[in-house]
Each structure stands twice: as C-alpha cells, then as structure tokens.
Amino acid sequence: MPGRSKNKQRSSTNAKPLITTPRGTIKPHKDFDEEAATGQAKKLHRALQKPVNMAVVISILTKYTVEERKYLEDVYNVQFDENLDAALRRETSANLQATLLALMQWENQFLASWTRRAMKGLGTDEKTLIEIFCGRSQAEVQNVVKAYQRMHGRSLEAELRSELSGDFRQLILGLVQLGRNEDELVGDNRARELAVELHAAGEARRGKDAAVFVRIFCETGCALLRRVFEIYPQVSAKANSIEKAIRSEFSGDMKTGLLTMVQCISDQPAYFAEKLYRAMRGLGTDDGALIRILVSRSEIDLENVKEKYQLNYGKSLAAAVADDTSGDYRKCLLAIIKSWA
C-alpha cells in the first residue's frame, strides 16, 4: 500500500496554479475506419473464445477511445452471434469486469449509473455525489443530468431533492440546475465584489449565510471564481484563504463539497490525483473510485493527473496502482494509465 509521502504538497489558492492543456492517455486514431474496426472485432472475438486471451482483450479495449470502442462494439455485434457486452460478462468477473464494462460505456452514462448507485438502497453515498457534481465541469454535469433522465426515466434533480437535505442539498441542486455563467468577464473589481460578499456571508457575521455561498459557487464562471479565490485573503479580516474560511464556517458534506469545488476550479488534475491517492492509501482499496476516475478521465486529463500524482506524492500513479492491485485487473488499469508512455 502506498504510504504518506513526507514531501506531499498541498494545493493552495494563494498561489496561482499553472493552467495546462488537458491531456488524456487514450487518444483518437485517425485511421479507425470500418476495415480497422472489423479487423479489431475479429481479434477480440478470437481472444474471447476458450482459452481466453485476456491480454489481447485488454490491449484492444484500452487502445481506443470510447467512440471508437462503441463503433467496434457495433461491428462485433453484427459480425458474431452474441454481443460484446455478454461476452465480456461471461469471460470476466469482479473488478476486471467492472473496468472493461466501464470502458464500454459512454462517460455520461457511466457517471449517471454511478449517480444512481450512490442514491439506491438505504443511505446515500455523498462522497461519490460530491466527486461527480462538485468535481466536474458544468458541461460534464449537464451530460450526466441528460443521461440520467434517458436511462432511468426520472428527473435527477427530483431524485437528489428527495435524497439530500440542508445546505448540501441546495449546493448539489444548484450545480445540476446548470446556472453557471461561463461567459462572465474576469475582472478584479467584480472578483473583489464577490470575495467581499462571501466574507460578509461567512467570517464577518455570526452564523453563516449558506445561500450566498451556493449562489456564488454555482452561478459564477470558473475563471472568475479562480480570481475570487485569489483575492479572498485580501478582503478577509484575518487574511484567511477561502479554504480556511470554509473550514471555519461549514461542516460535513457541505464543507467537503465547497472545498472540492475550490480545489477543482483551481487545479482539477490535483483534485483527481488526491482522490486516487485516498482510494489506495491504508488498508483496502476503494476500487469503485479507482475505476471511475481512471476510466472517466482517460480521454480528458489523465496525463495531467499522472503528473500531479508524481509531484504531490513522490511516486508514479502507475507504481501506486501496481502496488495496490493484481492480476488482469492490474494490467487493465496500467494499460489505461499508459504506464509505458
């Protein structure tokens, strides 16, 4: 198990993060046409016959983007007697199966399924809901909202309203209502106004006004919010960072949700690096989080996440995953990470 690194670096909004171009580990192939898809479908079909060649299965399904995988799946299902989903379910199990099936889902459907799982049965998995809604862009949240409606025939907003309560419910509802204005101009005067408003609603009064935090965090564009977070210590009577202010005024899931938003708006790859670190530290592994993050970020910014993991924890993400997993499951995760790249 990966231990705590003495050199662990915590992100802070006091220092401006370096905004870099998002880079995934799985990239599209220009030459992936019907002929290529047919050839890969035949290889995949042969590999899924007894004795199963799982190395080939993993190699093919982690090489292509989800759009290419879905095309390959369509070709496979036309060419052969059984569909690919059924073949994967028959020949795999446990975490390997969960990872391969995740790779075969559109990202919005995959995250919508996890959202449903987080609310199903007794109790609610607030930690997963925070990662999905506080940890992702408005465009990604919008795709999950639409997919949830299509897949389950229910309004996600209505489901969340019935499952959650208090200030945390208002925060999550504010995010799924998709009211963020990303076209808002970034200027120091406007950023200072919002920082002053947050200070007045929290540190500067007895008893917080959570509605102000919800409105500003859910409706302000991310670029402007980054500047608000940078300016906040200048307006705080105690020169506190926005993170320290949130920790002093809020508790529980509301505190975690707001802090997650600050971290993701400031440095999203660092947030996912930390989530992966927490999924593997100590005894046991949170395989659900491990699979969910690696698969969902593989085409977006997993290369950036790898860099942040190495920087913040003094160990490569691939090495941490290799230490915490085994067998074909390990091989599949390492193929997604592209540990040889």
Rank of each mutant, 00 (worst) to 15 (best):
D183Y: 14
A245D: 08
S266E: 03
S162A: 06
N108W: 04
E307L: 14
V144S: 07
A36V: 02
N240Q: 15
W106M: 13
E299A: 05
G282E: 00
E34Q: 15
A335R: 09
Q138I: 07
E230T: 12
G221F: 00
A195C: 03
V176G: 01
E68Y: 03
T128G: 06
D324M: 06
K16F: 13
R330F: 07
G202C: 04
V52C: 08
V212S: 10
G174C: 00
D328N: 14
T115R: 10
D323K: 12
W106V: 13
K6F: 15
Q268C: 12
L283A: 14
F250M: 04
R117W: 08
Q177H: 12
L48C: 04
Q268K: 14
R136P: 00
V228L: 04
N304C: 03
F213T: 01
E307H: 15
R136M: 04
Y71R: 15
G252I: 07
G39F: 11
K127M: 09
E219G: 13
N77H: 09
A320C: 06
R206L: 14
I246E: 08
A118R: 02
A37D: 01
E243Q: 13
T325W: 03
A270V: 07
A139G: 14
V78A: 15
R154E: 08
E249Y: 01
R154H: 11
S251L: 09
T99C: 01
L61D: 00
E203D: 06
T115W: 11
E219F: 11
M54Y: 14
M261F: 05
L259M: 05
I19S: 10
W340Y: 14
R247T: 04
M54R: 09
L111S: 02
C264F: 08
S162V: 02
K315D: 01
L198H: 02
V196M: 12
G327E: 05
S165R: 14
K8D: 08
Q49A: 09
L100K: 07
I172V: 08
K27M: 12
I337R: 01
K50S: 10
K255D: 08
